[in-house]
């Protein structure tokens, strides 16, 4: 593996791609309409694929190209297309319903990123520079994904939050030097999760309720407690 230090191309490019993934997490949070949310997710997955491919090049780890291909094909193209199709077919309202306004969510997001940096940097003082920066970027993406799941009302936006959280996990996994096995397996499993979500839940929920509002679901459950 080439030695990575601040100022070298390998470091700068990796850092730039990681930061772009994080920026797109904010993009997800800032959108008020469902279409652009899905597009922002697709962009994030494509940048993630580029980050994985760059790591494959830098680490001389050809198996990471596979991860990149899966991220590009499944998360960058197939899932967004499917999400768009679901929105069209189920005639889901085009606006994002928020439990918390856009501005407070963004402010909380910034706070979470600061938290991630504060948590990761002191723990990794002796690590290679790249790993620690990427780890804080990845942790930020994970936390922003969680925030999106909490602050959005409809099932579909919660699922996009979950998928974006997974992007953060993959970003962490690919940027760690020579991590075996997990990348391929986890990607396979994550794609599986995606299909479970689409195939089973959405159509079932639609069949039962004519609506993807999770609030609606909560009300039904409360009768039994």
């Amino acid at each position: 593996m080439e030695r990575m230090a601040i100022g070298t191309l390998s470091y700068d490019a990796a850092h730039l791609l990681g930061a772009l993934v994080l920026a797109l997490s904010f993009g997800l949070l800032s959108q008020r309409r469902l279409g652009p949310v899905i597009n922002a997710y697709a962009m994030q997955a494509i940048v993630l694929a580029a980050a994985a491919a760059w790591q494959a090049h830098v680490q001389h780890a050809p198996e990471l190209y596979l991860t990149a291909a899966v991220a590009l094909g499944a998360k960058g193209v197939a899932m967004p297309l499917a999400l768009h199709a679901i929105v069209r077919r189920l005639r889901i309202g085009k606006s994002v319903e928020t439990a918390l306004g856009i501005f407070p969510t963004m402010a909380l997001g910034v706070a979470l990123v600061a938290l991630a940096v504060l948590v990761v940097l002191p723990t990794t003082t002796q690590s290679q520079t790249l790993a620690r920066d990427d780890l804080s970027l990845a942790l930020s993406v994970v936390l922003l994904g969680l925030l999106m799941m909490i602050s959005r009302r409809t099932a579909i936006t919660q699922v996009i939050g979950f998928l974006s959280l997974e992007n953060g996990l993959i970003l962490a996994a690919v940027s760690v030097n020579g991590m075996p096995l997990v990348v391929e397996l986890s990607v396979a499993v994550l794609v599986l999760v995606g299909f479970v979500v689409f195939g089973v839940f959405f159509f079932r929920i639609r069949a039962e309720f004519d609506s993807l509002e999770t609030d609606h679901l909560d009300r039904i459950g409360s009768g039994h407690r």
Binding site: M149, F162, V182, F201, E208, T214, L217, I220, G221, H224
Partner: peptide, 25 residues
């Protein structure tokens, strides 16, 4: 109710298992 339960299960455990993967890394 079963669908609500599995939805909740999926979201919570999906997040949990996601955090566990981060911990593994």
């Amino acid at each position: 109710n079963a669908i609500e339960a599995s939805w909740k299960y999926f979201l919570l455990c999906g997040v949990g298992i996601g955090l566990a993967l981060f911990g593994t890394v």
